[in-house]
Design a protein around this nucleic acid. Structure first.
Length: 303
DNA sequence: GTTGAGCGTT
């Protein structure tokens, strides 16, 4: 099945300033690439359930990219449309929850040619899309050694910086990603961070060396452990919420008066989908208002 | 004691 590029993106009609902002991602893509895209007919290739967009099999060494910090609404088609402007793509995938379709916010783009992959990094790494800055880098070869590499760290010094995190943890391996949790209202570090290593071994070494140890410049011993895989729980939570379940720390807890169900009818699945969209929209509205509200309203939460 | 944005699929 083949499709021409332009045309599928966005049919929505903006009705408010928020909607216009919401649609800016799509407009950004369209405007940026109008005239450069669609010069030739491109094939989407097969689009199987959960299988992403692919046209052929292939080897992935310097062609496969991982794209992080995707906007929540960005689909495989959007990703494909954006990156195909660089060159032909072998396959394209956005990681998402199987049931709800909730995007985990990252994906893979495997180019046909190495030089296009390199150019895509140059072009799109750091690219601003609404409230997100894309991170585009070579995908590491997958395997067991990249599992359990994300660490959850607490009791960090309150004035912790990314540089300090790098200093403390960087000795034990290559840090792929780090994230300092901050107070929502004033941006102060909460003494909590996630540190993702390249390899499981490195993460284990960091735990062994730093757990219950007072770091340089700190006063209390750190807690360092492998982070929970929160994402899948969250996606499952949304699915379960609509089905009458609430989850508590990964455990499904039955809500009184809700009827437990083993199977969902088509209508119910549709409702799950709608509910997910609803949650997504609320997230965007919240983000939008956080970004646009005047300073004097910083304490006010419209949603 | 306190667990977040999403870096691991086909």
């Amino acid at each position: 099945m083949c499709e021409r590029y332009p045309g599928y993106l966005f049919g929505g009609t903006p009705v408010s300033s928020w909607d216009r902002s919401f649609n800016s991602l799509e407009n950004q893509i369209q405007q940026q690439y109008r005239g450069r895209v669609g010069g030739g007919v491109r094939c989407w290739g097969s689009m199987s359930e959960g299988g992403g967009i692919s046209s052929a099999g292939g080897d992935t060494a310097k062609t496969n990219l991982i794209v992080n910090y995707l906007p929540q609404t960005m689909t495989e088609k959007d990703l494909y449309a954006m990156f195909m402007t660089i060159g032909p793509i072998e396959s394209c995938r956005v990681m998402k929850d199987f049931k709800t379709g909730y995007s985990y916010g990252f994906g893979f783009v495997n180019f046909t040619r190495e030089e296009d992959a390199a150019r895509a990094i140059d072009t799109f790494n750091g690219y601003q899309l609404r409230n997100k800055r894309l991170k585009v880098s070579y995908a590491r070869p997958s395997g067991e050694d990249i599992k359990d590499t994300n660490l959850y760290v607490t009791n960090l010094p309150r004035a912790i910086t990314e540089e300090q995190l790098e200093t403390i943890f960087g000795k034990y391996g290559r840090i792929v990603q780090k994230h300092i949790l901050r107070d929502k209202s004033n941006g102060t570090p909460r003494g909590v961070a996630f540190v993702r290593f390249d390899k499981r071994e490195e993460a284990q070494e960091a735990i062994a060396a730093l757990n219950n140890v007072i770091p340089e410049g700190g006063t209390e011993p750190l807690s360092v452990k492998v982070a929970e895989e929160h994402g899948k729980q969250k996606a499952a939570y949304y699915a379960g919420w609509a089905a009458g379940f609430h989850h508590n720390r990964g455990e499904a807890v039955k809500v009184p008066h809700a009827t437990p169900q083993r199977h969902h009818s088509l209508d119910q699945l549709d409702m799950l989908h709608r509910h997910d969209l609803f949650l997504q929209q609320n997230r965007y509205r919240r983000e939008y208002h956080q970004q646009h509200q005047p300073a004097y309203m910083a304490h006010h939460r419209p949603f």
